[in-house]
Amino acid sequence: MGNQGYQTAPAGALPRRKGKFAKFVEQNIGFIYIIPWIIGFLVFKVYPFGSSLVYSFTDFNLFKGIKEVGVMNYVDIFTDKKITTALITTVKYAFMTVPLKLIAALFIAYILNFKIKCLNLFRTAYYIPSILGGSVAIAVLWKALFRDEGLINTMLGYIGIQGPSWLSDTSYAIWIICLLRIWQFGSAMVLFLAALKGVPVDLYEAATIDGAGKWRQFFTITIPLITPVIFYNLITQIVQAFQEFNGPYIITQGGPRNSTTLVAMLVYNYGFKLNEMGMASAIAWVMFIAVGILSVLAFISQKYWVYYSD
């Protein structure tokens, strides 16, 4: 059947004479099904993506239009301390949340993979934060937990600790924002759990006979066999971490002293509060390139550590 749509196979059942167009349609019927996607792709992705690059070299303002063209936005990005700080904070945020989230997810999945009673109950409990964590309601709850007289400090008070001002202290606030994301490790955990269940039991049995301990088995059998899922989780989590907006916007408004201003918030502030859409586009592009470099590095590194069985 080669390159044709395989629907052409029972040709005898179809009307005998067909025009060129009908034949073309028949051979490319698959293409017709993806036409809606192609339209959406061009209109909602390619065009905005391209125009954003163009805007980034202008001082486009929704009300004033374009007055200046050049690389001034990019120069500003790397010289304005506020913007460089936000870029660095975002990278830090990604490097703090992604590994911790994945380690928590793998650790819990590993424990759940032993013959645990009430497995479904635990799995559900761990998964709920992933489902709701992105909502405004949970961000509000987070504020209630970590405010000065919040639940956490009340609990610390029981054991005689005077809790700090989590949300107004520059050294803690970013961690509270990170914690909200790490708390949502359930979706990555579910993936790890499914992958762990796929590791053949006889491999462990053979290793036990050879005298390999649990730790050794974990690092020489389990980890290599689930590297594809580790890779998938790593990539998706990196892309998501760079986009975090709700947490800092609602819980800390980027403060105290911009210590929780992440790139997505900066793009919002420039684009929609100050109406400097050219500048906002340039910041978004710098972030896109950062994410792009990280993803490419991850894809290149794949061949050194990701093990595909087929």
Partner: peptide
Amino acid sequence: LFLPQVVLNVPQYIM
């Protein structure tokens, strides 16, 4: 999947 929505927000809004 790897194109962050943040990059698209501003141009989509304009569109």
